[in-house]
Amino acid sequence: MKLAILDYGSGNLHSVARACQKAGGAGVKARLADNPDLLKDASRLLLPGVCSFKAAMAGLERRGLLEALREAVMGRALPFLGICAGMQIMAEEGEEHGRHRGLGWISGRASPLSPKDSSFRIPHMGWNSLRLRRPHCLTEGLSGEDFYFAHSYRLEGAGEAVLAESDHGGFFAALVARDNMAGAQFHPEKSQKAGLRFLENFLRWNP
C-alpha cells in the first residue's frame, strides 16, 4: 500500500512518515509528496499540519497539490487523513490570520478556541481524552486513551461528521469523518501507543 504524505513546506514531516511506517509495518510504503506527480500512484493520502490554516492552503496551492488532492480524494475516493491544520482546512473556511477559504469537504469553519473561563490556557497543549460520539473503524481498539494536542483553533460546525470530541473549557471536534475522508485535531504521530494504534486503524480503513 502506497501512502503519500503531502509535503507543502510545513516543517517536520518525517515524524509522521516514521509513525505511519511503524504503525503499518512492512506492507506500507510511506513517502513524502511535494508535487502532483507523486500522488498519481498513491493509494492513501495523509495531510500533516504543523502551521496555520492560511499557510497550509497557500503551501498546497503553490506546489500544485491542491487540485491533485481534490482529484485523488473527491475523484478517486482515496482514503484521506488530515492532521491538526490538515484537518481544519477540510472545512469551508478558516479565521486564522484573516478569512480564508478551505477545501469545503466538511461543513463548518476553523475558529479560535474560546474556553468558558480564562483558567483554560490557549494553546490547548498536552494530552487530552476523547469522547466518542459513535463507533467507527478509526477508533477501533481505543477507549479512554489520551492523545497529544497543540492548537489554538478548532473546527466548528462540523455537525454529523464529528466522531469524537475533547473538552477544554467546552467540547470541540477532535476527530471528524465523512465518506473516505477523516481529520484528527490531535497529533497521532506524537501520541505514543494510542497514536500508533489510530494510524494503524487509518491504514487499514476501507471506506
Binding site: 518525517h14 515524524s15 516514521r18 509513525a19 506524537k190 505514543q192 497514536g195 500508533l196
Partner: peptide, 8 residues
Amino acid sequence: TAEACFMP
C-alpha cells in the same frame, strides 16, 4: 530521538 520516540 525523533526516529525512536513518538512523543513531543
